[in-house]
Amino acid sequence: MQSPTLPPTLTSRRRFLETGGVATLALASSPAIAEIAGQSSSSQSPSTESVRLTINGRQHALNLDPRTTLLDVLREHLALTGTKKGCDQGQCGACTVIVNGQRINSCLALAVMHAGDEITTIEGLVEDGDLHPMQAAFVRHDGLQCGYCTPGQICSAVAMLAEHKAGWPSYATADVATAPALTDAEIAERMSGNICRCSAYANIVAAIRDVAEGGRS
């Protein structure tokens, strides 16, 4: 499993870490060696699966216990801690990430089932060091209090606007055969998978509306 191109310090550290299971993954995901690790074939134990995940445009080659959720891979193995663990059972939306353009709860996703998918987390929304327009709008409208749900809210809102643009109806849509206007009732219904226990909803809706209308307000 050793890659000949790894520097000695890394190879020895790697050998050491391989016995430690989880920790291997954190190393394999380090930007400098993500590609190298991806090329090496793994001597996996029967209890692990090798999987390549594409997260924020970067490939990661991992050996995973198949029980590992996408959320735990992000937070515990790749140190992408922007994505939050709230309920861990699909009820709060704090773990929302965007997979192939669609928002999902990463807590209910087994990472091995997302090989080859394009995964975007809150960290991946920043472009060239600039906040994503949705991030900037949340700041401008004070769309948060404690902030714990915010990464999930923002990822959810970004994907939600794309769904609306594609003409998707919602339960708030009077006639599902039509493409509805994005009223506040539509925004609230479409964002109901993201709970904010500080109840910053009014400003969250304002932030989303601001981005939907394409400008500052």
Binding site: T96, R103, I104, A109, S156, S170, V176
Partner: peptide
């Protein structure tokens, strides 16, 4: 439309996407 309405009444978009 009954089916569309019923599906949209269930869960959240994140869950319906999976």
């Amino acid at each position: 439309p009954l089916l569309s309405q019923a599906i949209l009444a269930g869960a959240s978009t994140q869950l319906r996407n999976k």
